[in-house]
Design a protein around this nucleic acid. Structure first.
Length: 577
RNA sequence: CGGAGCGUAGCUCAGCCUGGCUAGAGCACUUGCUUUGGGAGCAAGACGUCGCAGGUUCAAAUCCUGUCGCUCCGACCA
């Protein structure tokens, strides 16, 4: 490709509406342009990167035995009603109407479509397993589009759906996709780590997310440096001892255990923190935090240890519904007769009480008395509170022991680029994707679904591979792998003649090469090639050519002077690495 | 949806608080000359409904009201 023939509008200055580095570089390097919030045009260079990522995804999906299809982006609402997701997913839908005023949905995902297909086409265990995938634009009415391609109204996703005759077979399909994902991200030059993930309201049993560590990521991952454990914080657990008092303190606690809850005045104390201070001196881990939620419009109490945080994703799992919110101050007061800061669950029987596992066995604890300005001490959780359900509800924090090996957990932010899900029979039952097994018995297919955010992956690569000068593309996804930079482009000049010769030779060997034949000063050409981040630059200038040499530079590496006739060989060698 | 901020040239921004000449700078763009190994210099030029609508005023980019859009923080996810 000749530079003057393609379109690469690089920007010297940082666009004001791009906050994170990868978004800035996407714009500055001339890869994308914004149409409006959450909607972007891929320019020629950006499209090349996208296509390369798609090719890697296709190759690995095909290798794993998945079959490519292309489903409609426009979907009838009926199949969503049938699957039962029409209501729960309504917030993400973009809807359209045809001339007859019938409603249509711009597909945010395709479980319903593929399951409908399979329901019609597959009827025997002999036709299973199957895995269908597509690479297609998805539409989601995001609450807040953000960070360029990271969270857009419209984005390109690879989505795959597996159908199996048994649970074990489904597990094997899942593993195949998991392995394929590891390869895909590796080939894209990304350091992505698979982490255990929450299944949320999807109700699946088993799920992993593929995370690219980055400060700008929207997710948080808890992991252990030994590599024994990694999980989304929504899902993460740790090996913290329960509220059972340590042996050394057992004696004093036993006496407290014998005594009954005792009310004491705590005027003006409204926080866990305030109660830890004099004259009360109650450590946070000896306090019970009482949270009030409205779950499907019913008041529910949630108890956590004072120093712990509620994890709403785990709450969703425990409640079996995502339809909840924190109660307002008025709702709390009318339910419990006290304001936040003085709440407790002792002798509360009117409302369902959920307690975090960490409170099990807790004695001598302090909690609100449901009377403004008073708390209760000497509370034994199991004796004094009627807990309807014990559950794992805590948000894990850094430093807690790894559940696998006991080493301290670390927490860091990450970008979710892929998600694999074991779905079970939820959709196949609802949409009647049934088959006859060997015994002639009708059964629903066991499903899995597997997504990769292709456009997001592109941005994640940039987020991970850049320096102060610009992008540093991995060879596998670079828009062009080699940029030839002659410093004089006048026709007939030895520099451009050599440049054209090298260009032709590299082209004939199938190298993605671009020739910077612009009439620009050297500084401009160097800056642009570094901003865009071509992995290899071949510089051709008068000084070195006088010695019969050209200059090869790996992006981010050192300059290698080399005889002109050896340049092509050297480039090919570098590309192999 | 709640909170914060911003809309002035293609881009980055000044001017607004305290209303007043023909609305500015840098970069980019056009032409010419010079320059030519790290985002060149000089000269000339082109580019604006100051987001939009309404109001206050002799006078509005500037003050007021409304509206639209964008960015950031929270709930959503690939």
């Amino acid at each position: 490709m000749l530079w003057t023939h393609t379109f690469i509008p690089t920007l010297k200055e940082t666009p004001a509406d791009a906050e994170i580095i990868s978004h800035q570089l996407l714009l500055r390097a001339g890869l994308i342009r914004k149409l409006t919030g959450g909607l972007y045009t891929f320019l020629p260079l950006g499209l090349r990167v996208l296509r390369k990522i798609e090719t890697i995804v296709r190759e690995e999906m095909n290798r794993a035995g998945a079959l490519e299809v292309l489903m409609p982006a426009l979907q009838p609402p009926e199949i969503w009603q049938k699957s039962g997701r029409y209501e729960s997913a309504r917030d993400v839908f973009f809807k359209a109407r045809d001339r007859a005023k019938k409603e249509w949905i711009l597909g945010p995902t395709h479980e319903e479509v593929i399951t409908t297909l399979v329901a019609n086409e597959i009827s025997s265990y002999r036709q299973l397993p199957r895995n269908f995938y597509q690479i297609q634009t998805k539409f989601r009415d995001e609450i807040r589009p953000r960070f360029g391609l990271m969270r857009a109204k419209e984005f390109i996703m690879k989505d795959a759906y597996s159908f199996d005759a048994s649970d074990e077979a489904a597990q094997a399909s899942y593993q195949k996709m998991y392995d394929a994902y590891v390869r895909i991200f590796q080939r894209c030059g990304l350091k992505a780590m698979p982490v255990e993930a929450d299944t949320g309201v999807m109700g699946g049993k088993f799920s992993h997310e593929f995370m690219v560590p980055a400060e700008t990521g929207e997710s948080e991952v808890a992991y252990c440096e030994t590599g024994d454990y990694a999980a989304n914080v929504e899902k993460a657990i740790s090996r913290l001892p329960s509220a059972e008092p340590p042996a050394a303190e057992q004696n004093s606690r036993i006496t407290q255990h014998a005594s009954l809850p005792e009310k004491f005045a705590t005027p003006g104390v409204l926080t866990i923190d305030a109660l830890t201070k004099a004259p009360y001196n109650v450590p946070a881990e000896q306090q019970i935090k009482t949270l009030v939620y409205l779950v499907e419009s019913k008041i529910v109490l949630i108890l956590m240890r004072g120093d712990h945080q509620l994890n709403e994703a785990k709450l969703t799992g425990t409640l079996g519904t995502g339809n909840f919110r924190a109660a307002t101050e008025e709702e709390i007061f009318s339910a419990l007769g006290a304001h936040p800061g003085s709440l407790g669950a002792v002798s509360v029987t009117k409302f369902r009480v959920y307690a975090d596992e960490m409170l099990r066995g807790g004695r001598g604890m302090t909690t609100g008395a449901n009377e403004d300005g008073f708390h209760l001490r000497n509370v034994s959780v199991e004796r004094d509170i009627s807990v309807a359900k014990w559950a794992e509800l805590r948000l894990v924090t850094a430093g807690e022991p790894c559940p696998a090996c006991g080493q301290p957990l670390k927490i860091r932010r990450a970008i979710e680029v892929g998600h694999v899900f074991k779905l079970g029979a939820k959709y196949s039952e609802a949409l009647e994707a049934l088959f006859l097994d060997e015994a002639g018995k009708q059964q629903p297919a066991i499903m899995g679904c597997y997504g990769i955010g292709v456009t997001r992956t592109m941005q994640a690569v940039i987020e991970q591979c850049q320096d102060k000068d610009g992008i540093i593309w991995p060879i596998s996804v670079a828009p062009f792998t080699v940029c030839i930079t002659p410093l004089n482009i006048n026709p007939g000049n030895p520099l451009i003649l050599l440049a054209e010769k090298l260009y032709q030779e590299l082209l004939s060997r199938g190298v993605d090469v671009i020739l910077d034949n612009r009439d620009e000063r050297p500084g401009v050409k160097f800056k642009d090639s570094e901003l865009i981040g071509f992995p290899i630059r071949v510089g051709i200038g008068e000084k070195s050519l006088a010695r019969g040499e050209v200059e090869i530079k790996r992006r981010g590496g050192v300059l290698i002077p080399i005889k002109a006739e050896e340049a092509v060989g050297k480039v090919l060698e570098l590309l192999k690495q």
